[in-house]
């Protein structure tokens, strides 16, 4: 892929652990890349399949969900439900001939605040290697 490809990425962040993680990231002077656009939700369990597919329709090259650790979700099952939906969307993308790696889910925690930014960079790398959606 061309080196100057800058993917469009939409990230759904839960407002609990992700917010505490952001504090830690900020104190470590870590910044999000500008092509990762954030949508905040009270809990990742609020996110529906349609919400995850919509960004692709609008031209996103990648989507990810960043929520709590499975065992410490403030809303108990929110992150588990989100993981199921992400898994479902992966299958849908495959059926549409879109690489399932373009959607992912990550577990953050305040203790590992740097991950707030690190997962964005990781996703950026993955999507950059894949190139734009439907580039053929």
């Amino acid at each position: 892929m061309s080196d100057n490809f800058k993917p469009k990425i939409v990230a759904f962040y839960c407002s609990n652990c992700a917010s505490s993680a952001a504090s830690v990231a900020e104190s470590m002077n870590k910044a999000l890349p500008d092509n990762v656009k954030i949508v905040q939700v009270p809990c990742t369990g609020r996110i529906e399949i349609l919400h995850l597919l919509k960004p692709f329709e609008e031209g996103a090259d990648g989507v990810y969900v960043a929520g709590c650790q499975e065992d410490s979700c403030q809303y108990v099952t929110g992150i588990t439900k989100a993981a199921k939906r992400v898994a479902y969307v992966k299958k849908t993308l495959e059926q549409l001939d879109i690489e399932p790696e373009r959607i992912n889910i990550y577990n953050l925690s305040a203790g590992k605040g740097q991950a707030f930014v690190d997962v964005a960079l990781e996703m950026n790398d993955i999507v950059r290697k894949l190139g734009p959606v439907l580039s053929e």
Binding site: V39, V41, P42, C43, G45, R46, I47, E48, L50, H51, K54, Q74, Y75, T77, G78, K81
Partner: peptide
């Protein structure tokens, strides 16, 4: 948390502060 809003098959549950419209 909004989990029920996402799950409700009839879309009968709404959350004014984080609506479907906002996320779509």
């Amino acid at each position: 948390c909004g989990i029920c809003v996402a799950e409700c098959p009839a879309k009968a549950i709404v959350m004014g502060t984080c609506s479907d419209e906002m996320l779509i």
